[in-house]
Design a protein around this nucleic acid. Structure first.
Lengths: 100, 100
DNA sequence: CATAAATATTCTCTTTTAGTTATATTTCTG
DNA sequence: CAGAAATATAACTAAAAGAGAATATTTATG
């Protein structure tokens, strides 16, 4: 699963948003997400496979942590679009490079 | 369809990437995309519904144009993650705000 | 006006996704 | 060591996504 697909699902974005504040046990995410425990567990598995989070064991808990490097791919794709909405100067540049 | 879902599909990203260079007829996109004409047409419809492209008629052609404002939502979501990989100072900030 | 060109729409099929319930696994605790 | 707590996995279901073939629609052209 690519980061693009991983991030397309709202619950998975919510998980990442929570993990921005720091490492959290799976249970916290279940509590936050209006989803069944297995449902959250599966999303976490996908996020792991996409390289967007990592886990470590802490007793019977699993602590999930954001692995933000995985988002670089998204960032890299988006980068060339950024100047389109940046400012008027960029809009001019856009116009100039159009239909070359 | 949200911009997130729209952009999750590789052919649709390819379409947007092509349109960055400027307005293009649907046929050009079909030629570029190793996909059937109806397949491309359907992706274009989804991109239109997601607000990422616009169309105008030109005779029997349909000229598609990038509508980059739609990507702002993606950009906005991604923004708070950017500092995670920006540089060492950001990494420190990340560490400090963790587990608050 | 008949045909061609460009594109959209419909139908059908297959695969994937997201969700649930039930069950298994692991670790902690009395 | 028995039961509880936390999480993962399995099995199943329903809905959605993506693709192709066939067809419709619209506009241009001889």
């Amino acid at each position: 699963m690519t980061p693009f697909e991983a991030v397309a699902e709202p619950s998975r974005r919510a998980i990442l948003d929570i993990l921005r504040a720091g490492e959290r046990p799976a249970g916290d995410l279940v509590a936050a997400l209006a989803l069944s425990q297995p449902g959250v567990s599966k999303h976490l598995k996908l996020l792991r496979e996409a390289g967007l989070v990592s886990v470590r064991a802490d007793g019977q808990r699993r602590l999930y942590r954001l692995q933000p490097q995985g988002l670089k791919e998204l960032e890299a794709w988006l980068a060339p679009y950024r100047h389109f909405w940046a400012d008027r100067l960029a809009a001019l540049g856009d116009h100039l490079e159009r239909d070359q």
